[in-house]
């Protein structure tokens, strides 16, 4: 709507003595009583319906009469409305500074993705260390990971799972890279909601989020792939996740904070 139009609007409707408003009328009521009686007749006796139809047309006729020019309107005088008050009996100031609370500087989302890459590179170390220490060999964890999308893998024997399978290696790496990037992205997006000091970020990103993630995996893996759930050593799973989380968090802390452009401060 153009500025000129609204100006015109304002001048046109200014202190006229009267305003044209639709006049009170009984015809809509008559019409609806007609409809109602028509229906009541169906439930009781058709005589009511006949009366209803008559009323319906009477109401309709009256209504159309109101639509004729200068028939359905009246001009009513304007009462002087007092100016707007900004505070009534309960006087309260608005909280001006809290239009919307946003930190002025944040770590960029890209820092989260980089954190995901670092965490993803670090994470295989504890996983492989555990696997070798437990006597499963280095390929065991990656085969288990591939088992997430390859259900037939769970049919393999434990011994077979410890061997090198090129397809599973490729699939496992793809899953690992994708998950690291996605979770890194989640870190990046969540960053503005995390505490702004470094210790807070390490606690939230290095411990709380890995624990939530582990909980989710623990809960869901039994449904997605029950056989696999049996083979996962949860303490070591936690350790791997925490290593990922710490790696990601520290990368984030090391990144440069950027300030939010003021234009983003939407109401």
């Amino acid at each position: 709507m153009s500025e000129a139009k609204s100006e015109k609007e304002a001048t046109e409707s200014r202190p006229a003595e009267t305003i044209e408003m639709p006049r009170s009328t009984v015809w809509p009521l008559v019409l609806s009583v007609g409809i109602a009686l028509l229906m009541v007749g169906i439930a009781t006796n058709l005589v009511f319906s006949v009366v209803g139809i008559v009323l319906l047309f009477v109401g309709l006729g009256g209504w159309i009469g109101e639509l004729r020019p200068h028939h359905g309107e009246e001009r009513i005088p304007i009462v002087d409305v007092p100016p707007i008050e900004f505070a009534g009996p309960a006087k309260v100031e608005g909280v001006r500074r809290a239009r919307l609370r946003l930190p002025t500087t944040i770590h960029p989302i890209s820092a989260g993705v980089r954190g995901g890459i670092v965490g993803g590179l670090l994470m295989p170390i504890p996983a492989a260390a555990w696997s070798i220490w437990a006597g499963h060999g280095i390929w065991y964890p990656i085969n288990l990971l591939a088992g997430l999308v390859m259900p037939d893998l769970t049919d393999l024997s434990a011994a077979n799972l410890e061997q090198f399978h090129p397809t599973y290696l490729v699939i496992g790496i793809i899953i690992h890279v994708l998950m690291s990037l996605v979770i890194g992205l989640v870190y990046g997006v969540l960053l503005p909601t995390l505490p702004s000091n470094n210790v807070g970020i390490i606690i939230a990103g290095g411990i709380v989020l890995p624990m939530i993630w582990t909980g989710l995996c623990h809960g869901w893996m039994g449904i997605v792939n029950p056989l696999l759930a049996d083979r996962v050593e949860w303490p070591w799973f936690v350790v791997s996740q925490v290593v990922f989380g710490l790696g990601a968090s520290i990368t984030v802390i090391l990144s440069e904070r950027v300030s939010i452009p003021p234009a983003e401060g939407d109401a």
Partner: peptide, 9 residues
Amino acid sequence: MNSSHHAEH
């Protein structure tokens, strides 16, 4: 009601 408002659209 408001005639100019109506005329407008």
